[in-house]
């Protein structure tokens, strides 16, 4: 298993990358900065699985919490509202 590089509470930024192929990082969250809510465990890399490979070693998966105001500049709900997204480690960097 790939070692987790981030801890709960740490600020992380989602890579603003646009690789070809199957990825599980939604477009809307790329480039956004949030806080690690928890480490979900480690899972085979879906980008590799989509290519019929085994996706091993498993990659740490995080739940990252983003303030809606940071995701959508014109968000019209409460300033406290958040969205939480599962993101694999290789999509994150220290913010």
């Amino acid at each position: 298993m790939v070692e987790p590089r981030f801890k709960p509470g740490e600020r992380v930024k989602v890579l603003n990358a646009y690789p070809l192929g199957h990825v599980r990082t939604p477009f809307y969250i790329r480039g956004c900065t949030g806080t690690v809510e928890r480490i979900c465990g480690a899972f085979p890399n879906p980008e590799e699985l989509a290519q019929m490979r085994d996706g091993l070693p498993p990659v740490p998966l995080y739940r990252v919490r983003f303030a809606q105001k940071d995701v959508w500049p014109d968000y019209n709900g409460s300033a406290a509202d958040v969205v939480e997204v599962e993101i694999f480690q290789h999509w994150l960097e220290k913010a």
């Binding site: 599980r24 990082t25 939604p26 969250i29 979900c40 465990g41 899972f43 879906p46 998966l61 739940r63 919490r65 709900g77 409460s78 406290a80 509202d81 958040v82 969205v83 939480e84 997204v85 599962e86 993101i87 694999f88």
Partner: peptide, 15 residues
């Protein structure tokens, strides 16, 4: 109401 925080959970991967 606005005083209640909304947490949206996007299940993008294995959970």
């Amino acid at each position: 109401p606005d005083r209640i925080q909304i947490r949206v959970h996007d299940s993008t991967a294995d959970m």
